[in-house]
Amino acid sequence: MFLIVAIAILVTMALAIVRALLGPSVYDRVLAVNVFGTKTALLLAVVAFLFGRPDFLDLALTYALINFVGVLAVLNFFQKRSSAAAKEKATQNHG
């Protein structure tokens, strides 16, 4: 049972990588990374039970808590970049 789930998750991970490689837009890639992070957390949880080491669930918990930070950093990056671009445009118009 766990084995089937693990294989299904591995296939999903491969599909997410295909999306991250092909793009085409930047947002496809951001989404692919996000999906991949979630799938990694799931894979670790399933494999922990598959190997009979459920105490290793801590790792999946770490991913679940921390993945969010990377996505927020991406949001912050684009927010800063777009505001910097707007500022540049404004100074160019003045000059």
């Binding site: 997410a16 991250a20 890639r29 692919a32 992070g37 990694t40 670790l44 991913y63 991406v74």
Partner: peptide, 11 residues
């Protein structure tokens, strides 16, 4: 973005 995936795969 791909480096993030690389790190997840490594883990």
């Amino acid at each position: 973005m791909l480096a993030a995936i690389f790190s997840l795969l490594m883990a």
